[in-house]
Design a binder for these strands. Structure first.
Lengths: 290, 290
DNA sequence: AGTGTTTTATTGTCGGACATTAAGCGGTTT
DNA sequence: AAACCGCTTAATGTCCGACAATAAAACACT
């Protein structure tokens, strides 16, 4: 009796028209889940992928806005016409895509992808690609000066003071390798954030993270290295304060150039940058990042 | 009778020591699945997350190398001491992380994260962040000249010819908007690849993709625009051929600068760059990307 | 050997089950 | 009345067992 129906469902689950069929069941849900007909998959598409794709489309399209809470798994499952197990696989995918956030197990909401996430993902990818310090440095040579330039244009008094504070902490952390690296990263990230260019922020973060981790391997070889870095930092901050765009950019460039000299002394040039122990621990000040 | 055992298992699944407990069962598998004790999660960690984390760690650590095939789900599940359903959720997560690739449903193998993947992810993130053309342009102003510079240093005869071919196709595609954009992207990507800097390639791709999509909105406003772009392309190629590093960089910069002028005329400056219809269709030549 | 056919093992999906626990609810306390 | 607390409820994480579809392997056949 119910065997026939179930068989048809099985069939539907393997047919391309699956989504369309489901449309019938979905138009009347509480958040107006309209399944998009735009998606035209070439490969065999499994139910869990379709579900993930569908929800993703709705988020991208704006039907579901960041912060919106999703209904329970049971309801979602019945809405899409699949079992909880299947739906769950789709959710896990979206979860690791960073499109869904999960403040508590009982609450699953739409989230804007955070920079951190992309950062760690890119960082991991670069580590797996075994990129060299040279590659990292070449790119950093253009990103950091740009960041400094933008920061000079947009920095508010408060922001510059905060930057100065970080720099102060860095100076105070002399000798503590881990803390030094964390604060150095923080300093550069802060400058990028002051520049108010999210694209630059997104692009440079994973790169800088990997590159500056090399500090650890450079320090033993170059005694003066640390001092010169500090000096350059100061000069960049001063230039930002003076609103001297070119000077800020110039010092930033010199700063990175100098880093490269250190790397050369340490023989890192074509060495592979290692993925740091925990990529996510880039929160030295302990402040909660909104 | 078996109730007691099951209860203990349940407990274990919720306890932090889960991984360690499992270690006992795993040391003797065929690929030497040693569960790492390094992972120290603070939040409540669910089994499927631990599994995903564990496999990820093994890949990152190099225990599992790209191309390695994973055992079947059943075996994996029993290895980790969870059900297939649970294991599957973990796999889905890794799958969308791009760490696992799936050439056929019967074959799940370790994969190096492909640039495309990261690209589309970053592109999506930027779209959700509603980044403006200005932000994209500011970064592109430094990435493309760098790409041109590196390409000049590393380009082989063949590569330059291939680049020239793409350019030729672009010229021939006059009037066909979609194809023009695709080939323009291809041209820029090719230059970046010639430069042999994977970091730059990773960083610039999603940005360039979004920025150059603006061409569509600019074209109607600036009749000469298309021609000037073509000219700049030619000049960059010529400079690369002549191994004139500075000239290549200069023309690349002028090219992007000019693009901005077009964007200004079209009034795009602080408009939000839209996520293109399908981010993954950046394969104009139809060649399979290894 | 090359090719077509049958087995087999694995996958995608299903439905139901249960312990655990976050969240909502009503009652109590100050 | 507002704040606090235990209880109920509902939803989650996990498990089990099952079945159709199918890719890969084993086999048979010419």
């Amino acid at each position: 009796m119910s065997d026939i129906k179930r068989f048809e469902d099985q069939q539907a689950a393997f047919l391309p028209g699956f989504i369309c069929d489901l449309t019938q069941c979905c138009v009347s849900t509480q958040w107006g889940l309209i399944l998009s007909e735009a998606t035209k998959p070439a490969q065999p598409t499994y139910a869990y992928q379709q579900i993930a794709g569908e929800i993703e489309a709705q988020i991208l399209r704006g039907d579901l806005k960041p912060g919106d809470q999703l209904p329970g798994e049971a309801q979602l499952a019945s809405t899409f016409g699949v079992t909880r197990s299947t739906l769950r696989e789709g959710l896990r995918q979206l979860e690791s895509d960073g499109l869904l956030h999960r403040p508590s197990p009982r609450r699953m909401e739409v989230a804007v992808p955070q920079a951190d996430q992309l950062t760690s993902r890119s960082g991991r990818a670069m580590a797996l690609m075994k990129v060299t310090f040279r590659e990292l440095w070449q790119v950093t040579m253009v990103t950091e000066p740009l960041a400094a330039r933008l920061a000079t244009q947009h920095g508010t008094e408060d922001e510059i003071n905060a930057l100065q504070a970080t720099h102060g902490a860095l100076v105070a952390a002399e000798g503590q390798m881990a803390r030094t690296i964390a604060l150095d990263e923080e300093y550069h990230t802060q400058i990028a954030e002051i520049g108010r260019n999210r694209v630059l922020g997104l692009a440079r973060e994973p790169i800088a993270l990997l590159l500056f981790r090399g500090f650890e391997q450079i320090a033993p070889f170059a005694p003066r290295f640390y001092k010169r870095q500090i000096e350059a930092h100061s000069n960049v901050i001063a230039a930002i304060r003076d609103r001297d765009v070119d000077r800020a950019e110039k010092w930033a460039r010199m700063h990175i150039e100098d880093f490269w000299r250190g790397a050369q002394i340490a023989g890192l040039e074509d060495k592979i940058a290692l993925v740091p122990g925990s990529l996510s621990s880039s929160n030295p000040t302990g402040e909660a990042r909104k």
